[in-house]
Amino acid sequence: MIKFGVIGTNWITESFITSASNIEDFQLTAIYSRTEKRALEFGEKFHVDKVFTDLETMAKSDDIDAVYIASPNSLHSKQAVLFLNQGKHVLCEKPIASNVAELEDMVNAARNNNVLLMEALKTTLLPSFTQIKDNLHKLGEIRQYFASYCQYSSRYDAYKSGTILNAFNPEFSNGAIMDIGVYTIYPMVALFGKPKTVQATGIMLESGVDGEGSIIFNFGKMTGNVMYSKITNSYIPSEIQGENGSMIIDKIHTPEHVEIRYKDGSVEDLTIPMEFPPMYFEAKEFIDLIKSHTYESSINSFSNSLNTMSLLDDIRSQLGLVFPADKH
Rank of each mutant, 00 (worst) to 15 (best):
G213W: 06
N166T: 13
L75V: 08
F276D: 05
K37Q: 06
K3W: 10
K45G: 01
N22P: 00
S19L: 05
F172P: 01
P324W: 01
F217P: 05
Y186Q: 07
S214E: 15
F168T: 06
N108Q: 12
D179F: 04
E256R: 12
K78L: 11
I272D: 01
N22I: 05
Y156C: 10
E282L: 13
I12L: 13
A59H: 04
G265Q: 07
K88T: 04
T223D: 13
Q144R: 14
L126K: 09
S77E: 03
K251A: 12
S234N: 15
Y295V: 00
P72N: 06
Y183R: 03
V267I: 15
V226T: 04
I180S: 06
S234Y: 12
W11C: 08
K88E: 09
T9P: 02
N166S: 13
V182M: 13
T163Y: 08
S77H: 09
E259H: 07
D62V: 06
Y295D: 06
M178A: 12
G211H: 10
G265A: 02
S214D: 12
V81L: 02
I252D: 00
H328W: 11
T18A: 10
I7Y: 11
K78S: 14
A200W: 06
S19H: 08
L165S: 09
R38C: 03
E56K: 15
E24T: 13
T124L: 10
K263D: 13
V189R: 07
T223L: 05
Y156E: 08
E282I: 15
E243K: 14
S15Q: 13
I64A: 08
L91Y: 04
K291V: 02
I315K: 07
R261W: 00
Y262L: 00
T13D: 03
V51N: 00
T201C: 06
E275A: 14
C92H: 00
N73F: 13
P324R: 11
L40N: 15
S33W: 08
L125I: 11
K291M: 04
E268S: 13
M204Y: 04
V81R: 03
L191H: 07
A97P: 00
G220I: 03
H257N: 14
V115F: 07
L136S: 13
I177P: 05
P72R: 12
S98E: 01
Y262V: 01
R143H: 09
P255L: 02
G181S: 05
V258H: 03
D62E: 14
M227E: 07
G87K: 10
V81M: 03
E44P: 05
F4D: 00
N112H: 12
S301K: 02
M279T: 15
P170H: 00
S301N: 05
Y149S: 03
R143E: 07
L84I: 03
I299L: 02
L191V: 08
V107W: 00
E119A: 14
H328F: 13
D250F: 01
F146K: 14
N112S: 15
F46E: 00
K251S: 12
P277R: 09
S297C: 08
D65Y: 09
L117Y: 11
G175K: 03
A120Q: 12
T197A: 10
Q144G: 05
V115W: 05
D49G: 01
M106S: 09
